[in-house]
Design a protein around this nucleic acid. Structure first.
Lengths: 137, 137
DNA sequence: ACATAATACTACTTAAAGGTAGAATTAATT
DNA sequence: AATTAATTCTACCTTTAAGTAGTATTATGT
């Protein structure tokens, strides 16, 4: 019952970047060291974030990453979507095919509220909101 | 963001068994067919449940499984514990080492309430409560 | 032009979850 | 005693997530 490592890392990276958004560019080496994320894995994740249009990359010497969009416009749920970690309404806690009003799983009724709260949490938290909150590690 | 297959299967199996608890014994073949769970994987899971003391197995002809404890005394959280799927208080949504009051992750404050609701859901749902609710598949 | 320092790409390796196969064991019925 | 139908054990296979390695590409500064 947890997010994938990629999602966790991505949120931590972007929250850190949001905190430091005054600085022009942040490069992979610095991010990896600061956040204790394996360098090669981090660059893989960053490339995903670039392809998804959340951040821009500048290659070559003095290059690095910066946001493409405003941090107030990037929600945590947007990040989860990139790594197929979204919590969908149809998602059944017991993994049965169709879990809705007609045919619902044994835990369906209990699951509705926590799921909704999770969705709300991810959909309503922007990077601006969470920037610089708490520790990095 | 979901339970392991083993946990999902185990809950579905036990909820079904709780529903049919009038019948003396339920065997793996019937459970696998009814619940559309791969037979061999189901027996593997059942053996875990036996070892954990939730159910008793009777070997040999006319054998099968039945509950060791009352279904009102088995909570969903007990099942999750068997498959290392419990939601713990220390569990950080962003996977950082120590996420508490002193050093907390960027999403810590938002995570507290959903996590608590999830824990509550699992800790307060007994097999008796969820027996026979909804569909099986 | 060249050296340097950065990202991007391709491919591979490792670890864990998910699932399968087959033989061994057990117990009831005949 | 033999047959049958059930669980259990050991070992393996498959798939996916996680992580690594090496090279190619790009752009800056000298």
């Amino acid at each position: 019952m947890q997010l994938s490592n990629s999602s966790q890392y991505a949120i931590r990276i972007l929250a850190y970047m949001a905190d430091k958004k005054d600085s022009k560019l942040l490069n992979a080496t610095e991010l990896a060291k600061t956040l204790y994320i394996p360098y090669k894995f981090l660059t893989k994740i960053m490339t995903e974030l670039v392809k998804s249009g959340l951040v821009i990359s500048i290659r070559g010497r003095d290059g690095g990453y910066k946001f493409e969009k405003k941090t107030s416009e990037i929600m945590v749920s947007d990040i989860l979507a990139i790594f197929n970690d979204s919590i969908k309404n149809e998602q059944c806690v017991l993994g049965i095919g169709f879990c809705n009003g007609l045919c619902k799983c044994a835990l369906h009724d209990q699951w509705v509220e926590p799921r909704h709260l999770l969705q709300k949490m991810f959909q309503e938290s922007s990077l601006e909101d969470i920037a610089g909150k708490g520790c990095k590690i």
